[in-house]
Structure formats: C-alpha cells, structure tokens
C-alpha cells in the first residue's frame, strides 16, 4: 500500500520532504526527496504535495488528487512546480523499506496529511 496524501490537511511545513531527504542521504537535505511540497504559487496561497512512486506521480492539489503515469508525466513539466531537481529524476518512494517503523514522512507529519490506509 502506497503513501496517501490529504492536500487539504497539509500545512506546507515540508517536514515530509526533509524526512524523505534524511532517509535517502542519512543527513539533512532536500534534493533527494521523493515527496515534495510545491510552493511556488505562494502569492495565491496555492500549494500541495507531489509524490514520486515507481510508475506514477501523485499530485495532491488542493482541489483534488491527480495520478499521472510516468510516461505521460514526462510529456509535461513533471507534474509539480519548479524545483532544483525534477521529480522524474528522483528515486521513487520505497516506503522506507529499511525502517521498522515504516515511512518516516508519515511519522513526522504533524497533521496526519501523509498517511497509509
């Protein structure tokens, strides 16, 4: 079961993104995260979360979820916003398979916007 995101619960704190970077790098960094808060439309207060899975990009917009198959997503900008490293070049979510406690992004989300069924 993959990670789920409730975009209306999300408060754009980026804890999930930082946690994912920690999982990848054993350090604090943001460039390797497969879960990213898109926040370039701050002037409109429009934000959400993009998650890269093995075969798809999950784009959790405030008005609803969109899932793009990777092949289709490659035809546009990558399903998110400007970021230092395009989502399609990042590793897919592995559900933190090396952790006994499950995905770290779920553990650090303060508002349960990231979860598993």
């Amino acid at each position: 079961m993959g990670i789920k995101i409730d975009p209306l619960k999300c408060i754009a704190c980026m804890a999930c993104e930082l946690a994912c970077g920690y999982h990848r790098d054993d350090a604090f960094a943001l460039l390797s995260s497969c879960v990213v808060v898109y926040r370039t439309r701050e002037r409109k207060d429009y934000f959400g979360v993009v998650l890269k899975e093995e075969d798809s990009l999950v784009i959790a917009r405030p008005e609803g979820l969109e899932v793009k198959k990777i092949g289709a997503a490659e035809e546009d900008s990558g399903g998110g916003d400007a970021s230092a490293k395009p989502m399609l070049l990042r590793e897919a979510c592995d559900l933190c398979e090396d952790r006994d406690d499950g995905p770290l992004c779920i553990q650090v989300c303060p508002v349960e916007a990231v979860y598993q069924d």
Binding site: I11, C13, M14, D45
Partner: peptide, 13 residues
C-alpha cells in the same frame, strides 16, 4: 480566511 500554513517544520500552522 482561506487556508493556514506553517513555517518550516513547525507543527502549529
């Protein structure tokens, strides 16, 4: 009021 959000990694929005 539209939405709330939080400062970086801050639990209260």
């Amino acid at each position: 009021l539209h939405r709330h959000h939080a400062a970086f990694n801050t639990p209260f929005a």
